[in-house]
Computed example of a mutant assay.
Amino acid sequence: MTEHNPQLADYLLRLGDSALILSQRLCAWCGHAPTLEEDLALSNVALDLLGQARLWLDYAGAKLSPRQSEDDLAYRRDAQGFRNVLLTEQPNGNFADTQLRQFLFDSWHCLVLRELSDSADSQVAAIAAKALKEASYHLRRSSEWVVRLGDGSARSHRYAQNALNHCWDYVGELFEMDALEQKMLGLGIGCDLAALHPEWLNYVQEVLTAATLKLPLKPSGLCGGKRGRHGEALVGLLMEMQHLTRIHPGAEW
């Protein structure tokens, strides 16, 4: 029988919810991207993230008492029950907004998954190792788009810089080590997010330089998503995502 561990479940939800919510955001581009190729590419990234979310949520649900399924966790929690980082729930905005959000997440996500691949928890390590292959591809794509947008036309550069300035408010949370993160690190399950920041920043700066974009100087202190404190953006997203399950509880098709 699986041992119940609510703290581990909460940690796993941080990983699963971030992938799930970003996947849902990207799905909204289906049929609306600037090119057919990009329409398919964004949909594929969304599907990758959804697959990762299913693995994290299934494992999280097994650690709860009573056990919950991935569907229970995705469709039957209110906003305050979600543990995704705030960056992932930010609205799509224009194409530059989406790509800068994706780039900042991908560059962090790859580092976290790399570290978690060596987790003392064998299932965390296995999920992370599988997800890392997909996340590495995501990062290549989003990095290329940041350079293309930033070093493109005057208009695309302006849009990209504005998107970066907005998203920068939320990157601090990516490296926040609260009590739960410290607990998981101490057990050898999690990783030291704060220690990843210098490597992340070096890579981000390298890409932004190629894109002729300026690194924002303002502090990036908006946080709370990992502890269930979210804004109206997530509420609206969940209303759409959970609509069918809410109006037809228990339905199967």
Rank of each mutant, 00 (worst) to 15 (best):
His243Trp: 15
Tyr137Lys: 07
Gln68Ala: 09
Leu149Asp: 00
Ala154Trp: 09
Leu55Trp: 07
Ala28Leu: 12
Leu237Lys: 06
Tyr170Cys: 03
Met241Lys: 14
Tyr137Gln: 05
Ala74Trp: 11
Leu149Met: 07
Asp192Gly: 08
Gly152Asp: 00
Leu64Arg: 11
Lys63Asn: 08
Val124Pro: 03
Asp78Thr: 15
Ser117Val: 09
His109Asn: 06
Arg14Ser: 04
Gly231Phe: 03
Glu70Ala: 15
Lys63Thr: 01
Gly231Trp: 00
Arg14Trp: 09
His248Met: 13
Leu215Trp: 02
Leu208Gln: 00
Asp192Gln: 11
Leu208Trp: 02
Asp17Met: 05
Leu193Ile: 11
Ala125Arg: 14
Pro219Tyr: 10
Asp118Leu: 14
Asp106Trp: 04
Leu244Ile: 12
Leu139Tyr: 06
Leu149Trp: 00
Arg25Asn: 05
Ser220Trp: 11
Gln99Tyr: 01
Val171Phe: 04
His243Tyr: 15
Ala46Ile: 01
Leu213His: 04
Asp48Pro: 06
Glu115Asp: 15
Phe175Trp: 03
Glu252Ile: 14
Pro34Arg: 04
His138Tyr: 01
Tyr75Gly: 02
Val45Leu: 06
Leu64Pro: 08
Ala211Pro: 02
Leu174Ser: 08
Asp169Cys: 10
Arg54Met: 09
Asp192Phe: 10
Glu199Lys: 14
Trp29Arg: 04
Leu15Gln: 13
Gly93Val: 05
Ala126His: 03
Gln161His: 06
Asn162Cys: 12
Arg155Phe: 10
Gly186Ser: 04
Ala128Trp: 07
Phe103Met: 08
Asp178His: 12
Ala210Val: 01
Cys191His: 00
Pro216Cys: 00
His197Ala: 14
Gln242Ser: 08
Leu215Gly: 02
Thr209Gln: 13
Leu36His: 13
Gly190Lys: 06
Leu73Lys: 08
Gly93Arg: 07
Pro34Gln: 07
Thr209Asp: 05
Ala9Leu: 03
Ser156Gln: 04
Gln52Arg: 07
Thr2Gly: 09
His32Met: 12
Glu37Ala: 15
His4Ser: 14
Val85Thr: 12
Trp145Asp: 00
Cys30Met: 12
Val146Phe: 01
Pro91Phe: 06
Leu215Phe: 01
Ala125Cys: 10
Lys130His: 05
Gly16Glu: 06
Ala163Leu: 01
Trp200Ile: 11
Val124Ser: 04
Asp118Gln: 15
Ala126Cys: 08
Gly231Leu: 06
Leu132Val: 00
Leu47Phe: 01
Gly16Asp: 05
Asn84Arg: 08
Asn84Phe: 05
Ala74Gln: 14
Pro216His: 05
Leu196Tyr: 01
Thr212Pro: 03
Gly172Ala: 08
Trp108Gln: 11
Glu176Asp: 14
Ala195Met: 08
Leu196Lys: 04
Leu201Ile: 09
Leu86Pro: 07
Gln242Trp: 14
Ser153Glu: 01
Leu20Trp: 05
Val112Pro: 02
Leu113Trp: 01
Ala46Pro: 03
Leu244Thr: 13
Met239Gln: 15
Leu55Val: 10
